[in-house]
């Protein structure tokens, strides 16, 4: 009944592997588990999400049990534990952004993409996620795509950004 994952499926590219080793070396002797969050980010950057195979790979790299990785990946909201579209739009839904019209702009965004929160467009271009305060409340409404912050959103601005990203 045990469904073991295919261990050889995921590996870091050479430059990421180098980066991973550099990260692991940052921590004191025996504390390499500290590298877990950064390595999961690295994995997600490469794979688009934190796949079970990838998590098992990270577990082997750090010499920890796979469950220790799953526990962490499911705790933190930035890790996508399911496959996602090419662009993940992480939209701030918290109070201060809402005061700046965040909810109206969000309705527009959903309409524009034709999807609801948590869904991916049929062409696989966009996944929509709601997140909490992104520490940019004075510049709200705000969403984030990968590392980039898009601020002072309006319906028009959202259309422009989606057009830009769709290219």
């Amino acid at each position: 009944m045990t469904t073991e994952t295919n261990n050889s499926a995921v590996e870091f590219t050479p430059d990421r592997l180098e980066k991973a080793n550099e990260i692991i070396a940052r921590y004191p002797e025996g504390k390499q588990k500290s590298a877990l969050l950064p390595l999961l980010h690295l994995l997600q950057e490469q794979e688009g999400w934190t796949s079970p195979e990838g998590m098992d790979y990270v577990a082997r790299m750090l010499d920890i049990q796979p469950i220790e990785v799953y526990e962490v990946a499911t705790f933190y909201t930035m890790y996508h534990i399911n496959p996602v579209g090419k662009h993940v739009i992480e939209y701030c839904r918290t109070g201060p952004c809402c005061l700046m019209g965040g909810e109206e702009v969000y309705s527009h965004l959903k309409q524009r993409l034709g999807i609801e929160t948590g869904q991916t467009t049929v062409d696989g271009q966009f996944t929509l996620k709601e997140v909490e305060c992104l520490a940019a409340c004075g510049m709200g409404p705000v969403f984030q795509v990968r590392e980039k912050y898009y601020m002072h959103l309006t319906n028009e601005r959202v259309d422009e950004i989606i057009d830009e990203l769709s290219k």
Binding site: K33, P38, L62, F75, Y76, T77, M78, Y79
Partner: peptide, 24 residues
Amino acid sequence: QPGGGAYICGEETALLESLEGKRG
């Protein structure tokens, strides 16, 4: 050190747990 998306990791001991590679 990057966090992973969890407000609770601002609480100092949760932060330390997170820095040790654990749940916050």
